[in-house]
Design a protein around this nucleic acid. Structure first.
Length: 468
RNA sequence: GGCGAGUUAGGAAAGCGGUUAUCCAGAUGAUUGCAAAUCAUUUUAGGCCGGUUCGACUCCGGCACUCGCCUCCA
């Protein structure tokens, strides 16, 4: 029985899809004006793992993750670079896809882009105007004031604040909301923004302009998944105002409930502080990939529960590396069969862990228990060893781990190339020395390899090597 | 100020009202020419103060501290 924490009710709930056997899930993706940092990596990995597990559990999942490819930051960055905004976004979309692949993140079923969804966005803004949830307002187009902006009227939506637990009065009492004279209420937010000269723009009934940030997700999600769907996810920082506004827009426009279950992953932190662009304390995925493999980063992310804060440090990545090596060491040298025993008790434990709000740390513990069993069995019962190993590999694969060949994984470093010829030559030389019982020479070669970051292991009459 | 989350051993991180979480690090033993890998055993816990209970890390109350949201953010 799958239970998931719902941000809307702040409780774990038994999950029940709208349509039996099917799950429709939307996750807010990147705004593509820069490289992905570790916080983005967490969203990618977490919801990829959720999707993989839901599919493993037998659900037919439609996973949609959007790309925000037009907004103020993109325009500003393109201006700074003196390049067309679409060149900028194409570049970072490509980079994002590369990073995702390195992290073992499968592509979503659909990846809608804001700029390719203008008709749906305009239709939704129209619907909101028609139903009295929005109003047009004056805007400075660079030359004169025109009636080119459209705002959402938060006071018209009675449940505003239900996701974030905020009340309109309390929000107004806060002094952090910038006062904009064109708005009726400081909390109203823009649906359609009139273009200034030279800005990228799209035709609309309100003149040339571009969508506000929140409306695109309402439009793209309902467009791909229908007015009412099962799960909507994203980082915790999107809960307010972004997701709150999505609910207000979608439910007002369609008159239907929007999303049954909201999932929010916790932040990545560094020195007990949120990692973010604005604090400028972020590490990009690419920087980390120079030192650690994508799968090591993935393991690091999954070693904490998705709703907990995740602290970043080199030591923790080192820890993830060693832990993952233990699993790969276990599979090393085994011809693990595809078929596995579905009645293995570990599978039930694994499912219980994952069914409990995707408890990946607990699920990893099950993998390590299996690894222990495999290592104990392998000295005298190859058949049983392979059976357990098959279960281990299968369950790890559900988490997007242990998909690589063990030997290859252990012999590949992050970033740099391996000079295999040199390594093999040294190992051959050491083999000769050992045959002659010249232990001094054998050990000298071993320390030479060690200095190269190579560990040699003599077992079963053969010498294997791996990266340290 | 409003709202929310958290505080577990040397580090990380879970479950659980009484039985070994797990991973990394450390110790000892087995194995090894010596190592590595692996196995076995093992040392460090539950912010503080009360309460409930035969029994609390686990439930309840208070306090302290940390973090987040309330503005763009994954």
């Amino acid at each position: 029985m799958l239970r998931i924490h719902n941000s809307l009710t702040k409780k774990k709930e038994v999950f029940k899809p709208i349509e039996p056997g099917k799950i429709k899930m939307y996750v807010c993706g990147m705004t593509v004006y820069d490289l992905c940092h570790l916080g983005h990596a967490r969203v990618l990995v977490v919801f990829d793992t959720v999707t993989r597990y839901l599919r493993y559990s037998g659900y037919d999942v439609t996973y949609v993750r959007n790309i925000t490819d037009i907004d103020d930051k993109i325009i500003n960055r393109a201006n700074e670079n003196a390049e067309d905004y679409s060149e900028l976004t194409e570049r970072f979309i490509r980079a994002m896809h590369e990073d995702a692949a390195e992290l073992g993140v499968l592509p979503p079923d659909e990846e809608p882009r804001a700029t390719a969804s203008m008709q749906q966005i305009i239709d939704m803004v129209k619907a909101l105007l028609d139903k009295g949830f929005a109003y047009t307002a004056q805007s400075d187009d660079g030359q004169s004031m025109v009636q080119g902006d459209v705002y959402y009227d938060v006071s018209a939506f009675e449940n505003y604040g239900k996701l974030s637990g905020k009340k309109l009065d309390e929000l107004r009492a806060g002094e952090r909301v910038a006062v904009d004279e064109n708005k009726d209420d400081p909390l109203d937010f823009v649906l359609w923004k009139a273009a200034k000269p030279g800005e990228p723009s799209w035709d609309s009934p309100w003149g040339k302009g571009r969508p506000g940030w929140h409306i695109e997700c309402s439009a793209m999600s309902t467009c791909c998944l229908g007015n009412h769907f099962d799960i909507h996810g994203g980082g915790q920082d999107l809960q307010f105002p972004h997701h709150e506004n999505e609910i207000a827009q979608s439910e007002a426009a369609t008159g239907e409930p929007f999303v049954n279950l909201w999932m929010h992953n916790g932040f990545v932190r560094i020195n007990d502080e949120k990692m973010s662009k604005s604090l400028n304390n972020f590490f990009t995925v690419r920087e980390i990939l120079k030192l650690y493999k994508g799968e090591e980063i993935r393991y690091f992310v999954l070693a904490s529960h998705y709703r907990s804060p995740l602290n970043y440090s080199d030591q923790l990545l080192d820890n993830a590396r060693t832990a993952l090596s233990r699993l790969y060491n276990t599979l090393r040298g085994l011809q693990v069969p595809e078929d596995y025993d579905e009645n293995d008790p570990a599978i039930e434990k694994f499912r219980q862990a994952m069914d409990d709000d995707f408890n990946t740390p607990e699920a990893l513990a099950v993998l390590f228990d299996l690894a222990g069993q495999v290592n104990r069995l392998r000295t005298d019962d190859l058949d049983a060893t392979l059976q357990k190993a098959a279960v281990l590999k299968k369950l790890a694969n559900v988490l997007g781990l242990l998909e690589a060949d063990a030997e290859q994984f252990l012999q590949t470093g992050a970033g740099e190339d391996t000079d295999e010829d040199k390594i093999n030559a040294l190992i051959e030389a050491r083999k000769l020395a050992r045959e002659n019982k010249d232990w001094a020479e054998a050990d000298r070669i071993r320390s030479e390899l060690d200095a190269m970051g190579i560990v040699v292991e003599d077992k079963d009459g053969k010498t294997a090597w791996r990266r340290s």
